[in-house]
Simulated scan of single mutants.
Amino acid sequence: MNFEILAERLSRPEPPWLYRADDAVEPQRILVSEGDMAIFCLDSATMTTVDDFFEIIARELLFPDYFGRNWPAFDECLADIYEWYPMQTIVLVFAGSEALLSRDTADLPTLFRILTKVSQELADEVIEGQPWDRPSVAFHVVFDLGIETTAVGRSLPLLPIP
């Protein structure tokens, strides 16, 4: 997989925010973290429950110790990801996504809703003369072929993986 080409396609802060890859993805940690771009590849194989998901996402994305390991706290910390990774483009890639929340499938719509909401929020530049000011951030999420999008009531656009 050519992650530079993938990142170029996802470098604009505009919808669609969530994609389904047209191929399987091998899990790795941080694939690219240079310049204005960070791409994280997360192994969904061990994220079968909500508790597992929160534990792994907090560790991999370096959420602060006060992360409450619940959906509102996930929403808040993810919306603040620019504080930990001040990049113009941030991409989360979920490898092995067929296992993602497979034991807590009722939570998949909540995950998709938060990921979409945060992507939309980060796309808007914040200029208020405050310490939390930030540029527009292109935040996208890519699930590999395993994700069962019917569980969330919508399909995801297909992203060709170079």
Rank of each mutant, 00 (worst) to 15 (best):
I114G: 13
T48Y: 03
L31R: 08
D144G: 11
Q28R: 05
G153N: 06
R154L: 03
S102C: 15
E26M: 07
G146K: 12
Q28P: 00
R154M: 10
P157V: 15
I114Q: 02
M87I: 03
L10H: 01
R113T: 08
V142E: 15
C41E: 07
W71E: 07
W132N: 04
A95E: 13
M37E: 08
L115P: 05
A151P: 11
M47S: 08
P160N: 05
L10M: 12
I90P: 00
V32M: 12
A99E: 14
L100D: 01
A38Q: 05
I57M: 06
A95V: 13
F143V: 10
Q130I: 14
T110M: 08
L62W: 04
L18T: 05
M47Y: 03
V137Y: 13
I56H: 03
M37S: 08
A45W: 06
G96Q: 10
A45E: 07
L100C: 01
L111R: 02
V32N: 05
W71S: 09
T150K: 01
F143K: 11
L18K: 04
E55H: 09
A138T: 10
E121S: 03
L122T: 04
D23L: 00
A45I: 00
F54N: 00
C41S: 05
I127C: 00
A38E: 04
Q28E: 12
E55V: 01
Q28F: 00
S136G: 12
D75P: 04
G146W: 02
P109D: 14
F3D: 15
S11I: 10
P15Q: 11
F143I: 04
D65P: 01
T149D: 15
L156Q: 00
S102G: 10
V25A: 01
E60H: 10
P86T: 08
G35A: 01
L111S: 13
L18H: 04
F74G: 00
V32I: 13
F112R: 15
I5H: 09
I127R: 07
E8L: 12
I56D: 06
Q120I: 15
P15S: 10
G146C: 11
P64E: 12
M47W: 07
G129N: 11
D52P: 06
F139T: 08
R69Y: 14
V93G: 02
R113S: 03
Y82R: 12
D65T: 04
A7H: 14
S97W: 14
E148A: 02
T110H: 02
R69M: 09
P109Y: 15
D133T: 10
L6H: 09
L61P: 12
E26P: 06
D80S: 12
S102I: 13
A21C: 07
A38D: 14
F54T: 03
P160K: 11
S102L: 09
I147D: 01
T116S: 12
W132Y: 11
I39W: 00
Y85G: 08
V91D: 04
D52A: 10
E128C: 07
T89I: 14
E26L: 08
P27V: 08
F53I: 02
R12M: 15
A38V: 13
F139K: 04
V141Q: 06
P131Q: 03
A79F: 02
D133L: 05
E14G: 03
R29Q: 06
D124N: 02
